[in-house]
Design a protein around this nucleic acid. Structure first.
Length: 703
DNA sequence: TGAAGCCCCTAAATG
DNA sequence: AGGGGCTTCA
């Protein structure tokens, strides 16, 4: 590494006393120190609800105000939504001066770099992107081609292959290390797997396809192998801000260092207690490595919580104190009154759902808007009964963490047509659209793909008649005609989409005979979305890298309506806050997930997940679980509450009993309940606790 | 040989 | 609700 000379700022910006924003007045001491720290490497360790985002926004604003060109600042966040929110907030502080800040996720920023510098990597700038399921499909195809399933009776299936190979990239380790650590049952297949991985890489390169991991890996490769490019890139990022640093993985941490290698100006924000993305290679130890990684790094802490009441923090602190690792942080709040968090056992999932539905409705009547309430859960299918209940009550909701628009099969179909037009070598997209044609299955599709992506045949023309079977020739010709007409990307995107839909609709109705009318409305939503883009390439990349929730789409048109209730996986609720939080399905085996139990460190991660859920709440926190789980196959099974919530003193987590309202005519509906207690009254002296009983809204039948 | 139909089973988190 | 494995059909 060359000798380094640090350039001092020359004061071209506004002098500190003439700044537009009064940082002193708007931030507490710790936040102020962080926001206004001198350039260089800065790590802000910030507990939940301590104003981490606020501080980052003010830091951004401060950097711009003191003279840094917004275009040379890069803001890396976990989702595009987070980047947009922060830039909007910073822009409003500074009359729009922050709008030209570059930002987004690691994946989208890397994609931009790769498009710009594609030639240096022998890459077509028109490469298309494979999401995880596309990648799995390609692997499945190559696996069949290589004859692997025949060689071993138990070869990993496509999803496992995909995550296995993904692991090697995100944890930056060899296949044998990954196998030993996470897939010991497949270690004996190492050589076959290694070969398949090589084949997969070669196949992607040949067809100009990049999967999510390639976006990171190849950028890293670009910058480590090409010093000129690295310096160019780093020179254009005068300051790099990274949010949620605890959820970066090995490659991402390296990338940050590469981006900042010319000047060392980096601000990272994170909380080791909130690291919840281990499964995709995130390593909270990146936080502790940061000071070693950057010369003269400063570390600042934010400890005062502005979000939650003290009782909620008491529970959060209690939970995290019982982690194997001790987290050196105790959150405190000025808001020391408030209801105790409640633990609510329900008879079964339906009753749990009724409880949530009723409470949400009551809180709304008491003036807590739906958008300030959230129902959180470990995995997306946990909310099934709650969704039914909300439907009955006509309560609008958005669900985060469910199926994404671009993951729905019928949407993928349409997008695959556009992808082929964009990149005629995209074998994954070809594979998908060819198999929609009646008479074309996996084998024929493969033969056709080899023919179509051959250099001599990429003109979308069927010219060698003998090559094709009659059974699909008509449809194939229609397909190629359609693709040929949209290939140049000259018509507006909406017209291209219309052309695709004209061809696709008959196939669509055949492919989804049971429910195509329902799916049709999704297709109709796609056109207005496309209308906002003038580049097909950007449209496709955005849908893949910044996925839209299917349920958010239904809400979109109705802007005048009440903002909906939030249903979210805990993962997707990261960084958000709500007046009232309902954490449902707090069951052992669900949270912690049974999958985590035998993974080393898995249980700790589940506990952090619970911690994240708890610290989303400002005023009210209800943790509920069904005592009976109904499964179609095992029948009803007894379920027990999460082990994390056993033995929590009642002074910290108050039990609430759900009681059926006695039917008006009879009095013996629930003989086992001696004194029906109105529900829930966590603290009698606090008026914000809604009182209620569990009466059914309409079709009420006590069970 | 390859496509399509059928039945069984199980169901994590995300860019 | 959808995928994977197996059987049947062209």
């Amino acid at each position: 590494m060359a000798r380094r000379i640090t350039l001092e700022p020359t004061g071209s910006g506004t002098a500190p006393e003439n700044l537009t924003v009064d940082y002193r007045a708007e931030l507490n001491d710790q936040q102020y120190a962080a926001a206004t720290a001198n350039p260089g490497a800065l790590l802000i360790v910030a507990g939940a609800g301590t104003g981490k985002t606020r501080t980052l926004v003010y830091r951004l604003s401060y950097l711009v105000e003191t003279g840094l060109d917004p275009r040379s600042i890069v803001l890396l966040t976990f989702t595009r939504r987070a980047a947009r929110d922060m830039m909007t907030r910073a822009a409003s502080l500074l009359d729009g001066r922050c709008q030209r800040v570059r930002g987004g996720t690691f994946h989208s920023f890397c994609m931009q770099l790769l498009r710009t510098h594609a030639p240096a990597l022998n890459l077509s700038p028109d490469f298309t992107i494979l999401d995880a399921s596309d990648a799995a499909d390609v692997l499945s195809m190559l696996r069949t081609r290589g004859g692997y399933p025949d060689r071993a009776d138990r070869f990993p299936n496509k999803g496992t292959l995909q995550s296995m190979f993904s692991d090697t990239v995100n944890r930056d380790r060899s296949l044998s290390e990954a196998l030993n650590d996470r897939y010991p049952q497949f270690t004996h297949l190492h050589d076959d797997l290694r070969e398949l991985q090589d084949t997969y890489r070669a196949y992607k390169a040949e067809h100009h396809m990049l999967d999510f991991d390639d976006l990171l890996r190849r950028t890293h490769e670009l910058l480590s192998q090409n010093d000129t490019v690295r310096q160019q890139v780093a020179a254009r990022c005068r300051h790099v801000l990274v949010d949620e640093y605890q959820d970066t993985n090995a490659v991402q941490a390296d990338l940050v260092q590469q981006f900042t290698s010319v000047h060392g100006n980096v601000t990272a924000v994170g909380d080791d207690a909130q690291s919840i993305y281990r499964f995709r290679g995130a390593d909270f130890r990146n936080i502790f490595r940061f000071p070693k990684q950057y010369d003269n790094a400063r570390v600042l802490k934010l400890e005062q919580n502005y979000r939650s009441t003290q009782p909620i923090l008491d529970l959060a602190n209690h939970l995290i104190d019982h982690a194997n690792r001790s987290y050196d942080k105790t959150l405190f709040s000025d808001a020391d009154t408030g209801d105790l968090p409640a633990i609510v056992p329900a008879a079964d999932t339906a009753m749990e759902a009724r409880f949530v539905g009723q409470m949400v409705a009551q809180l709304r009547e008491q003036g807590v808007p739906l958008r300030d309430q959230a129902v959180l859960f470990r995995s997306s299918h946990n909310s099934y009964d709650v969704e039914i209940e909300l439907g009955k009550r006509n309560i609008p909701y958005v669900k985060y963490g469910g199926t994404k628009l671009s993951e729905a099969a019928h949407i993928k179909d349409v997008l695959a047509h556009l992808r082929v037009a964009e990149n005629p070598d995209d074998a994954a997209a070809w594979n998908r659209i060819l198999q929609l044609i009646h008479g074309i299955g996996p084998k024929t599709a493969q033969d056709l793909i080899d023919w179509l992506t051959d250099d001599d045949h990429s003109a979308f023309v069927v010219d060698e008649q003998g090559h094709f079977a009659q059974r699909y020739l008509d449809t194939l010709t229609q397909l190629l005609n359609t693709l040929r007409s949209i290939r140049p990307d000259e018509q507006p995107l909406t017209e291209q989409m219309e052309a695709v839909l004209t061809y696709y609709r008959p196939l669509f109705e055949e492919a989804y005979p049971d429910d195509y009318p329902k799916r049709e409305s999704d297709l109709e939503h796609l056109a207005p979305l496309a209308a906002r883009y003038d580049s097909r390439q950007r449209f496709l990349a955005d849908l893949t890298l910044d996925p839209i929730e299917l349920t958010a789409l239904d809400q979109e048109g109705a802007t005048d309506d009440e903002a909906p209730l939030v249903l979210s996986t805990i993962h997707s609720a990261k960084g958000l806050e709500f007046h009232s939080v309902f954490l449902i399905h707090a069951l052992d085996g669900t949270l912690p997930s049974q999958y985590a139990l035998d993974e080393p460190g898995g249980l700790d991660e589940e506990l952090r997940l619970l911690y994240v859920a708890v610290t989303r709440a400002e005023e009210n926190l209800f943790i509920s679980y069904p005592m009976l789980q109904t499964s179609r196959y095992y029948g009803d099974t007894m379920a027990s509450r999460s082990r994390f919530l056993e033995n929590v003193p009642e002074s910290i987590l108050e039990p609430v009993e759900l009681v059926e309202a006695p039917p008006e005519s009879t009095s013996d509906a629930l003989p086992e309940s001696p004194e029906p207690e109105a529900l829930p009254t966590p603290d009698d002296d606090n008026t914000s606790a809604p009182k209620s009983d569990l009466s059914e809204p309409e079709d009420g039948l006590p069970f």
